[in-house]
């Protein structure tokens, strides 16, 4: 019996991948023009049935827990809870873990930056895989901020996506080795999320 895993990322748009035992994608689907909640179940089912599989053939599932869309990540949490009930091994990691997962020996501090919606950007200072400092700044202040720092900046819609595309097998293998389970990363507290932007 093959050891197959599922990859789910709803932080930007819906991304689903089926992974073999060597952590290589057998198939990968990305949908950005429809609401995640409308299609997530049918797309997971389609991905599996296209390969002649069912949910019970999965041995594990990898989740990207953000940072990203609040609603999208809620769906990820729901699916993760469902898989846990079916005794499917669940692993999770963050976008900003990727540089550290790829190069754990490197102790250099780096910066992760992403759009936090509501006209703001999230900035995290990461060292040894841990968040040292975090900050939300207005999008208009981002160019000024970028000029003042010397550390490498990783962005989801830039180097980080490309690094994941290049070395995703290494990332997923390390997440599995570490048995990494992370909670959802929210940009703000729930109260702030329910407050509309000014």
């Amino acid at each position: 019996m093959k050891k197959l895993s599922l990859f789910i990322d709803t932080s930007q748009c819906l991304k689903l991948g089926l992974i073999d035992s060597s952590k290589k994608f057998i198939s990968f689907t990305e949908i950005s023009d429809k609401k995640c909640g409308d299609i997530i179940h049918t797309e997971i089912n389609k991905l599996l049935t296209d390969q002649g599989l069912s949910l019970f053939d999965l041995s594990s599932c990898f989740f990207l827990m953000g940072p990203g869309s609040y609603t999208g990540l809620r769906f990820t949490q729901g699916i993760m809870d469902l898989f846990k009930m079916e005794n499917i091994e669940c692993y999770s990691f963050y976008w900003f873990d990727i540089p550290w997962l790829l190069n754990p020996q490197n102790n250099d501090k780096y910066i992760f930056m992403t759009n936090a919606f509501k006209g703001e950007s999230l900035i995290l200072w990461i060292k040894d895989g841990e968040i040292e400092q975090q900050k939300l700044i207005l999008n208009k202040d981002v160019p000024k901020f970028s000029e003042t720092i010397s550390e490498k900046i990783w962005k989801i819609d830039g180097d980080l996506s490309n690094a994941f595309d290049r070395d995703y097998a290494q990332v997923l293998q390390r997440v599995e080795d570490l048995k990494s389970i992370k909670p959802i990363y929210y940009f703000r507290s729930d109260i702030e999320e329910f407050t509309p932007a000014l």
Binding site: F28, E30, S32, D33, D165
Partner: peptide, 10 residues
């Protein structure tokens, strides 16, 4: 060949 992804849309 790293991988190939299908992007669904119009």
């Amino acid at each position: 060949f790293s991988f190939h992804r299908k992007i669904k849309g119009n």
